[in-house]
Simulated assay, not measured.
Amino acid sequence: MRNKRTILWTVILLIVLAALGWGWHLFDKRHQSAAGETADVTINADTLYHQYSTDEHAADQKYMGKVIAVTGRLTEVQHSGGSTSWLLSTQPGGGGINCQIFAGTKIDPEPHSGDLVTVKGRCTGFLMDVSLVDCVPEK
């Protein structure tokens, strides 16, 4: 009886240690930009925004979690703390593509409003704007 209890507690301890090890692995995992990845889709900012505003569910099926390259007019560059966001506007008065630039990305030269840019990043869905994260500008 005592031997079975010891085996049971040993197995439980091993499961807990394995779970803690996996959790630490996920916590310590390095965040990566989309720079080294090939774009799954290349699309115009107007087309991407129109697809999301027309049928969000269908657009999520096509683009969610994928690396996409989006080309459009840069409307605004926002610097907040250590992060930079680019807004590619498609609609007068609102609506566009919000591109969160990967931290530490060197952008030389910095584009200005009105410039035509191509940005590659991971699509995370639609919240008033289409959101892309881990973005890098394409040359």
Results as ranks from 00 to 15, higher is better:
residue 42 T to G: 04
residue 30 R to A: 01
residue 76 E to Q: 07
residue 45 A to T: 06
residue 41 V to D: 00
residue 34 A to K: 00
residue 34 A to P: 06
residue 59 A to S: 13
residue 31 H to W: 00
residue 57 H to K: 15
residue 52 Y to G: 11
residue 32 Q to Y: 00
residue 57 H to W: 07
residue 45 A to P: 05
residue 66 K to D: 01
residue 66 K to P: 12
residue 68 I to P: 04
residue 33 S to D: 05
residue 31 H to S: 07
residue 47 T to W: 02
residue 33 S to L: 14
residue 39 A to I: 04
residue 74 L to S: 06
residue 46 D to W: 01
residue 78 Q to G: 01
residue 76 E to P: 02
residue 56 E to H: 11
residue 72 G to A: 02
residue 57 H to R: 06
residue 70 V to R: 13
residue 53 S to T: 09
residue 35 A to G: 08
residue 66 K to C: 12
residue 24 W to Y: 00
residue 46 D to F: 05
residue 58 A to G: 02
residue 73 R to G: 10
residue 64 M to F: 15
residue 63 Y to R: 03
residue 71 T to W: 05
residue 24 W to F: 13
residue 31 H to L: 00
residue 68 I to D: 02
residue 30 R to E: 15
residue 77 V to F: 05
residue 44 N to D: 14
residue 70 V to M: 08
residue 32 Q to C: 09
residue 26 L to F: 09
residue 53 S to C: 01
residue 74 L to N: 10
residue 62 K to D: 14
residue 55 D to Y: 09
residue 51 Q to I: 06
residue 50 H to C: 03
residue 57 H to E: 14
residue 69 A to P: 01
residue 63 Y to A: 09
residue 52 Y to F: 15
residue 29 K to P: 09
residue 57 H to V: 06
residue 39 A to Y: 07
residue 38 T to W: 00
residue 30 R to P: 14
residue 60 D to R: 06
residue 64 M to G: 03
residue 78 Q to V: 15
residue 35 A to W: 00
residue 46 D to Q: 11
residue 34 A to N: 07
residue 75 T to W: 15
residue 47 T to K: 10
residue 24 W to A: 15
residue 37 E to G: 08
residue 36 G to F: 01
residue 67 V to Y: 03
residue 58 A to D: 10
residue 36 G to V: 04
residue 24 W to Q: 09
residue 55 D to I: 02
residue 76 E to C: 05
residue 78 Q to R: 15
residue 29 K to H: 12
residue 49 Y to M: 10
residue 78 Q to A: 10
residue 54 T to V: 04
residue 59 A to M: 02
residue 56 E to S: 06
residue 34 A to V: 04
residue 26 L to D: 04
